[in-house]
């Protein structure tokens, strides 16, 4: 059987595209294609990734200019058809900016970029993205200046009622408290899905947790995605 295809959308300021591709190729056993943001056709769409980075420098709101790229119009089309879409870090910011996901990512509450390891409690173990994680708490690093998730009380309730919250920043043991919140995110939210449950956005980087020198929980994440294909 020929290998399945997944795409990574590349913006001029993306900088986790290679990192993501390395992990995907290693743990998903698929063919990875880079899709340039200016391309108006995505041909390999069994799964689409939006990588981390600074899509267009992000001097304005992170991810906002990226929503104007032709490739994003394609992403929206496939998202509506129900294909799995995963946005990590800047990818998450872009997904909220083009309204594929609820909420917005504000500046971190201390106004500074933050890079550190975080523990994440897996809140929803049934989603297609998290059902194979097999762990209550996973450890992925974060690296962002705008990761402070915020949404209105109504849409927060909706996220909760529909079980759309996938990851929350937590302690090592899974306690969700202020100390384990690195950026001021509402209710410690680190990753969510859409109502149709085919789009995931998350600030932490699973592709940075696949090496024996640090956490290896990212391997579980990617292997789990592999089972969707």
């Amino acid at each position: 059987m020929s290998k399945k295809n997944v795409s990574i959308i590349v913006f001029p300021g993306s900088n986790c595209d290679r990192d993501l591709s390395v992990s995907i190729q290693k743990y998903l056993n698929v063919k990875v294609s880079y899709v340039w943001h200016n391309d108006s056709k995505i041909e390999n769409y069994e799964m689409i990734f939006l990588p981390g980075g600074f899509s267009f420098g992000d001097y304005l709101r992170a991810g906002v200019i990226a929503t104007k790229s032709p490739a994003i119009h394609e992403v929206i089309k496939y998202a509506k058809k129900g294909f799995p879409i995963i946005g990590i870090c800047n990818g998450f910011q872009i997904l909220t900016e083009c309204n594929l996901l609820k909420g917005t990512l504000l500046k971190n509450n201390n106004q500074l970029f933050k890079c550190e390891n975080t523990h994440l409690k897996v809140e929803n173990k049934e989603s297609i993205f998290s059902k194979n994680l097999k762990k209550k708490v996973v450890e992925f690093p974060i690296a962002h200046a705008q990761g402070n998730f915020y949404t209105t009380p109504d849409s927060l309730k909706e996220l909760e009622d529909n079980n759309q919250i996938i990851f929350k920043y937590s302690s090592k043991n899974g306690n969700i408290n202020k100390e384990s919140n690195p950026n001021g995110s509402l209710n410690n939210i680190a990753g969510i899905i859409n109502k149709k449950k085919n789009i995931l956005g998350m600030m932490p980087h699973p592709e940075r947790a696949v090496d024996k020198f640090g956490s290896q929980d990212g391997i579980l994440f990617f292997k789990g995605l592999g089972e969707l294909l």
Partner: peptide
């Protein structure tokens, strides 16, 4: 150090 992305490029 936490203000620097130490991990990008993996």
């Amino acid at each position: 150090f936490n203000q620097y992305d130490k991990l990008v490029m993996c």
